[in-house]
């Protein structure tokens, strides 16, 4: 029990440190155009990296995931908001699960 609590405490610390260090230490604005450009691209790079290929194993079947991916990209491409894209994708996968169970 004590060991588990200690583990939880350690996990909380090592999760908080990378979150807190840059935002508390970097109070001045970065001037370098290179670093500014680098930081500008980070959100897009990190989101794309986290989405693909992890999305392929996010449902019970790679096929359903691919269909969900295509539907999601189409909805987002057509400028639908966050909530609509998420719900449309989930419903698509749910429909697939109902129509082709165990595929």
């Amino acid at each position: 029990m004590t060991k588990i609590l200690l583990a939880v405490f350690i996990m909380a610390i090592v999760t908080y440190i990378p979150r807190a260090l840059p935002i508390t230490a970097m109070t001045r604005k970065i001037e370098s155009p290179f670093i500014k450009s680098f930081l500008y691209y980070i959100p897009y790079a990190v989101l794309a990296a986290m989405t693909f290929p992890a999305i392929l194993s996010a449902t019970s079947s790679t096929y359903f995931s691919i269909i969900g991916l295509v539907v999601g990209v189409c909805l987002a491409y057509r400028g639908q908001g966050l909530f609509k894209v998420a719900m449309g994708t989930v419903l698509t996968v749910y429909l697939c699960e109902m129509l082709f169970p165990g595929l």
């Binding site: 989405t51 994708t89 109902m98």
Partner: peptide
Amino acid sequence: ALQSAMGIALYAMFIALFVP
């Protein structure tokens, strides 16, 4: 079936954020 479908929700959100 619902669990599996919900698994894709967070990724769909990411897509909605970086595709446009």
